[in-house]
């Protein structure tokens, strides 16, 4: 049986047209096992961009794949923060995909993201809150987009915060709704302190992404985000 890395290498070397786009993505993002467990020490970004390189849906890619891999290696995979979180939402995959796909919606439930501006069909500009009232900005590329199933992105080369990831929408068994899985990787860029990025994405990135997914669920299921901010209490 073909392994994930075989598939990846294949698409890297020749963009094999006999392996369908969907299969190629399924090899990394499909199934129920933990994605990051399968990834081990490898770079999520490297794999995502490598597969995207062989993707018919990804026209006009300017990225040099081997360079991309070199950059990823140079930034040091061991310094990467990798997060995987899943939540089940009692809405259809279509509804969830549509809301998420409009990136300008994301700050509604992502607390660390101040704004997202869609530049064109593929690119978007992100502004995130940083410590001490500052902001960090970068452009992100949509590297795969499968309606109602998957959205994958990576920051443009040279971005201050090198990040990549995907969100996957998959029906849960037994009418339990839709499983929404987010897998993300942040690479600590040269010159930026690990502590700074830790603050940017939370001391506990797992918890932060978990909280954001939970707010997404609240919003999509109930129409609002549960809160107590501003309620009465003894002084």
């Amino acid at each position: 049986m073909e392994t994930e890395s075989d598939k990846t290498n294949q698409s890297q070397s020749q963009g094999d047209a006999t392996v369908s786009d969907t299969e190629r993505w399924a090899s990394i993002v499909g199934g129920s096992a933990m994605v990051l467990m399968g990834l081990k020490q490898r770079s999520l970004r490297g794999i995502l961009t490598a597969i995207a390189g062989g993707s018919l849906a990804y026209h006009g890619a300017t990225t040099d794949k081997s360079l991309q891999e070199k950059v990823t290696d140079a930034t040091g995979i061991n310094k990467a923060i990798k997060v995987e979180k899943t939540v089940t939402i009692n809405r259809s995959a279509e509804d969830l995909y549509n809301y998420w796909h409009n990136f300008e919606n994301l700050p509604t439930f992502m607390k660390h993201v101040k704004s997202v501006q869609v530049l064109d069909l593929r690119r978007s500009h992100w502004v995130a809150n940083a410590p001490m009232g500052q902001t960090i900005e970068w452009n992100a590329d949509l590297i795969n987009d499968q309606p109602n199933q998957l959205i994958a992105w990576a920051s443009e080369e040279g971005a201050e915060v090198d990040n990549s990831g995907f969100v996957r929408f998959q029906p849960a068994p037994g009418d339990r709704g839709t499983e929404v899985k987010v897998v993300m990787e942040y690479n600590v860029p040269g010159g930026m302190l690990t502590a700074t990025i830790a603050k940017l994405f939370g001391e506990e990135p797992e918890q932060q992404i978990g909280d954001e997914l939970r707010r997404f669920k609240q919003l999509m299921e109930t129409g609002e985000i549960a809160t107590t901010e501003g309620q009465s209490r003894g002084q």
Binding site: N90, Q207, D211, R214, Q218, E221, T222, I225, A226, T228
Partner: peptide
């Protein structure tokens, strides 16, 4: 118990297990 009425727990009448009504779920 505060229950949203929309989640799987509420929809299956397990109201006190509501997925969405605790802002401090973490």
């Amino acid at each position: 118990t505060i229950s949203c009425g929309n989640c799987y727990s509420c929809k299956t009448a397990q109201w006190s297990l509501c997925d969405n009504s605790n802002p401090n779920a973490f």
